[in-house]
């Protein structure tokens, strides 16, 4: 059983966590072409090497990110999502913005 270190709760058995998939930025859904969108949704990089992944500590529902080497299964570091997402994200419609 691997140990994963939650930035909030410290080192815990990995069975306390839920895997949330690879982390990658969403392309602009209103401007990106169909192919790029399909790749975003359906394709995974599945890279051999260091990848960034979403993990959630189930007991505290705390989401964070982990850098993991998929070749050695070594977790290099874990960090809070706010390190990447540090400001509010807004979406604007491609053509007209809904007046609400």
């Amino acid at each position: 059983m691997k140990i994963l270190t939650c930035p909030l709760n410290g080192p815990r058995n990995i069975s306390e966590f839920t895997y949330g998939g690879e982390h990658h930025s969403m392309p602009d859904p209103n401007t990106t072409d169909s192919r790029a969108w399909a790749e975003h949704v359906f394709f995974h990089d599945n890279a051999a090497g260091i990848v960034t992944e979403w993990w959630c500590h189930s007991a505290s529902s705390f989401w964070f990110l982990a850098e993991r080497n998929t070749i050695t299964d070594e977790v290099i570091r874990t960090f809070e999502a706010s390190e990447i997402y540090n400001q509010r994200i807004d979406f604007v419609a491609a053509s007209t913005v809904e007046g609400s």
Binding site: N9, S15, E16, S58, A59, S60
Partner: peptide
């Protein structure tokens, strides 16, 4: 305080 699993139930 530990937020963890006790008998597989999420617990504080």
């Amino acid at each position: 305080v530990a937020q963890t699993s006790v008998a597989k139930a999420n617990s504080i």
